[in-house]
Design a protein around this nucleic acid. Structure first.
Lengths: 212, 212
DNA sequence: CTAAAAATGTGAAAAACTTAACACTGTTAG
DNA sequence: CTAACAGTGTTAAGTTTTTCACATTTTTAG
């Protein structure tokens, strides 16, 4: 199987699948590249290129088979056994993520959450139990958790990342506004909401200036 | 002033500033390109290139003046009068965003939130009042809101975007998993947490396969 | 005073990513 | 039956973004 796919293609494949799943629900069996493109705000060529890279061939004039394509994307980007995920920090963002994911992607299982607040520890939200952060290393091993999502306050970012790494986690998604450091064998993805908003603000300002 | 900056540079400038603000608090007056680079997990050349693009010149052997650089980045990416922002959807994610922003960036003011739940309407969270979504067009005009952050459930994504556009908003940050369509004069930024997590999962899987 | 070291600034090369252009092929209309 | 059409697949070109390589300059050490 090909895995030297561009980073951007990986992201788009995930997005294509999301769109395709909606089509499947609606009973749509085939879809054209330009239909996918319109949904994702990209070009049809881009879509065809991505599908070419994963080796999927559509039917001429009929487009792509929705079900087949969903399955192929799954084979490429999912692990066959699924991956267990933990959320560290059960503030608003942590809870938002749990609500968001529940029942969405079966191969990504949120199996635990962690917090330091005694009021939260011991509770279960949408089937996800909340543990003390002190028990993190143990629970990570017991439950074979391989990805940690960090939704703790910024001041705890570094230590949380260190703890996750020490516990043997293999991927971190950091929603903290503070960048963290991890060893090379741990995959790190960081996202900062302020950056996104500032970017929007910049382009809004730019558009206004263009008009003037 | 130069505004034909690469998209990526805009994002990084926002991130540099965040890092610089922390340095400023610590009392650090100067910083080297490689120090910024290490924090952001990029190369020093990249940092220097970005600063070159915005026309900032450091002091040889002393690095960049933290305070000056923060101010220059502000001149580039901020609007002088600031921008008013609204959050649509006061679920966990909406509340997370408010907590996240309060007191962080003075030029981005979250001045209103909207929901359909009568229990939430009329409340104030961290100084942000919650209005009925029915009043959105009016409030947007009254308060001169130019950016809307969408944190509503996916099924309301399209109609919320339409409403925001019709109300005269100029930028949308869509945290819904459903892509929306807006006219060309409205800047749209979309972010999907599932895509990010799936990306992490993909690279975790990939790393494991490399080892085997 | 001079050489080595350590930083910035930048033209040019390289890499990553996107788009154009077009060959190809079923499908449809006449 | 044939021409026009509307889709896919892909090579090549173009664009954007990153990195290399190195000239330049200040500081430090001897």
């Amino acid at each position: 199987m090909k895995y030297n796919l561009p980073h951007k293609t990986i992201e788009r494949l995930s997005q294509y699948r999301r769109a395709l799943l909606i089509c499947l629900e609606k009973g749509q069996t085939h879809i054209y590249s330009h239909e996918i493109a319109r949904i994702q705000h990209i070009t049809a060529v881009q879509v065809r290129r991505d599908l070419m890279l994963i080796g999927y061939t559509g039917t001429l004039r009929k487009g792509y088979n929705v079900k087949e394509l969903i399955e192929l994307i799954g084979e490429i980007i999912d692990s066959s056994e699924g991956i267990n995920v933990a959320i560290v920090g059960m503030g608003n963002l942590g809870r938002a993520l749990i609500n968001y994911f529940i029942g969405k992607r079966s191969h990504l299982r949120i199996v635990a959450s962690f917090d330091i607040n005694p009021d939260k520890i011991g509770n279960t939200m949408s089937g996800v139990p909340c543990f003390s952060i002190d028990d993190l290393p143990q629970i990570v091993k017991e439950k074979n958790i391989r990805i940690g999502i960090m939704t703790v306050p910024a001041e705890f970012a570094s230590q949380t990342a260190d703890l996750l790494v020490k516990s043997g986690i293999k991927g971190i998604l950091n929603y903290t506004p503070k960048p963290v450091n991890v060893p090379d064998d741990v995959y790190l993805e960081e996202y900062d909401m302020i950056t996104s908003l500032e970017k929007v603000a910049f382009y809004v300002k730019l558009n206004e200036q263009k008009i003037v």
